[in-house]
Design a binder for these strands. Structure first.
Lengths: 202, 202
DNA sequence: CTATTAATCAAACGTACGTTCGTTTAATTA
DNA sequence: TAATTAAACGAACGTACGTTTGATTAATAG
């Protein structure tokens, strides 16, 4: 056999990327085999090489594409708010909404930095840093204007991001709360804090 | 060759578990090979089977042991605080301090649930739930006494845990801040919130 | 309706996998 | 010192790995 009836390159390409994400989440990148991937797509192992240069390049493409899309999605967001308060609320909503719909990409981006080559890793790390800066700058401005209390900006940035991204690890589409409700709870936690009245500094 | 001079079972056992943790973090459990593990310990692959029943059993033992130790460490903590405020501060400090010193175990516990068999997975999930309940109950009491504002207890529990555990992913022993400083910042974020004065509900 | 290009195949390369087996040497006990 | 136990060994099992090669068929263009 050779070329199959109805085969289309773009379709196979997308099927390969989708199957790869699922297999990487389930087994880890190193443990995923191209034979599994080919079987999932319904194709012979050799055929996968029409669409990827190597297993390593596949991972690099997946992660880099994810980071690019994330950064672009934030830039494309229309209402990013005016005041620091509004901006922070907008960021919380955007981050949860975007990540919860792409849990496979988020899982891979968080787990498989270890499997990237040096150049690809540097690329992804730089893009992650660029995205983090969006939140960092919001906090910085809020502290500057006095809207937010003094705190360590780096730690606060990481802490808020970890909290928001964490939703991906327990969210289920058929769960008790809708995404909008989950966003509201997190906005409350970030904006008011868990203990709004306790231990005021000023 | 056979038994080597100076070989002691307990020593080899510990070396195997330590090397396994490092290799799992670096490659993922499925991708870690027993041949790598044996080489790291300085022993033949067959020798590893004096200390483990199978590769799967090794992972189950690592994860279950970690969860047991975590639960026991919290139970053994002397000063858990009296008021909800004190209890929450104590939990934040304990959680960060304990996890930051065991980053390999934390990474494995968060990543490799997927590689556990059904029984072992249920065991670890139950223990994780038991640990989470410690924080959940503190928040519940604080809301009941009016010390904490109303919020969804489940989401708040997960959100705080994600934020605290997240420290493991960027903490470096030679970093800018000490563990005690990092704890203080997180206590501030959890207790006062990022924006203490904004959007007060009551 | 032929020529070309796109999409896939089958087969093979050397290498490595988890695990079992029976053997061999070191340390401990009697 | 002799018997026993603890701790390791080397070799092998069938299976699967990432990747390359050249052939083969389907769709498209002239």
């Amino acid at each position: 056999m050779a070329r199959t009836k109805g085969s289309v390159g773009a379709t196979t390409q997308k099927a390969i990327l989708d199957a790869a994400k699922t297999l990487i989440v389930k087994h880890g990148f190193e443990a995923m085999t191209l034979r599994q991937l080919a079987a999932e797509v319904g194709v012979q192992p050799a055929s996968v090489y029409r669409y990827i240069d190597s297993k390593d390049a596949l991972l690099a493409a997946l992660m880099s594409t994810h980071m690019d899309a994330l950064i672009c999605a934030w830039e494309a967001l229309e209402d990013k708010g005016e005041t620091p308060d509004e901006q922070l609320e907008a960021f919380v909503a955007f981050h949860i909404r975007y990540h919860v719909e792409r849990r496979e990409d988020v899982f891979i981006a968080n787990m498989e930095l270890r499997s990237l080559g040096e150049a690809a890793r540097a690329d992804v790390v730089a893009k992650r840093r660029a995205y983090e800066l969006n939140l960092w700058r919001i906090l910085e401005e809020g502290v500057k204007t006095g809207d937010f209390p003094e705190t360590d900006l780096e730690v606060a940035t990481y802490a808020i991001l970890a909290m928001l991204t964490g939703v991906c690890f327990w969210y289920r589409p058929d769960g008790r709360l809708s995404i909008e409700q989950i966003i509201a709870v997190h906005q409350g936690l970030v904006m008011r804090g868990v203990v709004s009245g306790a231990l005021q500094t000023a």
